Amino acid sequence: DETGKELVLVLYDYQEKSPREVTIKKGDILTLLNSTNKDWWKIEVNDRQGFVPAAYLKKLD
């Protein structure tokens, strides 16, 4: 059920640097789980959840 889920576009590649982070690729469109922290957003990638720098993402309307 995708209702109410926010999507984000990945602006730059990011390689995870800790187990709490996930790797993302430029151009991916992913589900945003939590954006309350202005610097690190929690997203879902391939059934994995983790954090990436918010500056690497853009919210889609």
Rank of each mutant, 00 (worst) to 15 (best):
D1F: 14
D1A: 15
D1K: 05
E2C: 12
E2H: 15
E2W: 11
E2G: 15
E2A: 13
T3I: 13
T3Y: 12
G4R: 15
G4N: 14
G4K: 14
K5Q: 10
K5P: 13
K5Y: 12
E6I: 14
E6A: 13
E6W: 10
L7N: 05
L7H: 10
V8L: 04
V8I: 05
V8H: 01
V8G: 02
L9D: 01
L9N: 02
L9R: 07
L9V: 10
V10Y: 01
V10N: 00
V10G: 04
V10W: 01
L11P: 00
Y12M: 12
Y12N: 10
Y12G: 10
Y12R: 15
Y14M: 01
Y14N: 00
Y14C: 01
Q15S: 10
Q15W: 13
Q15L: 12
Q15G: 08
Q15D: 12
E16F: 07
E16W: 06
E16K: 11
E16H: 07
E16M: 12
K17N: 11
S18D: 11
S18Y: 06
S18W: 07
S18E: 09
P19G: 08
P19H: 10
P19D: 13
P19C: 07
P19W: 07
R20V: 11
R20N: 15
V22A: 08
V22H: 02
V22M: 08
V22E: 02
V22T: 04
T23M: 03
T23G: 05
I24P: 00
I24L: 05
K25F: 12
K25N: 09
K25V: 10
K25W: 12
K26N: 05
K26P: 03
K26A: 11
G27S: 04
D28I: 05
D28S: 11
D28W: 14
D28Y: 07
I29N: 02
I29T: 07
L30C: 12
L30W: 14
L30H: 15
L30Y: 10
L30K: 02
T31A: 11
T31I: 15
T31S: 09
L32S: 02
L33W: 05
L33Y: 04
L33T: 05
N34L: 09
S35A: 14
S35M: 07
S35Q: 09
S35W: 11
S35G: 11
T36I: 08
N37V: 05
N37G: 11
N37L: 09
N37D: 15
K38E: 10
K38N: 11
K38V: 11
D39Q: 11
W40A: 02
K42H: 08
I43F: 00
I43G: 00
E44D: 07
V45R: 11
V45Y: 13
V45L: 09
N46L: 15
N46T: 08
D47R: 09
R48G: 05
R48D: 04
R48T: 07
R48P: 00
R48H: 07
Q49L: 07
G50R: 04
G50H: 06
G50T: 05
G50A: 07
F51S: 03
F51D: 04
F51N: 03
F51L: 08
F51M: 07
F51Y: 13
P53G: 01
P53L: 03
P53K: 03
A54I: 04
A54M: 05
A54K: 06
A54C: 07
A55Q: 12
A55S: 13
A55E: 12
Y56M: 09
Y56V: 13
Y56F: 10
Y56D: 02
L57G: 01
K58A: 14
K59L: 11
K59M: 10
K59S: 05
K59N: 05
K59W: 06
L60V: 13
L60G: 04
L60R: 04
D61I: 13
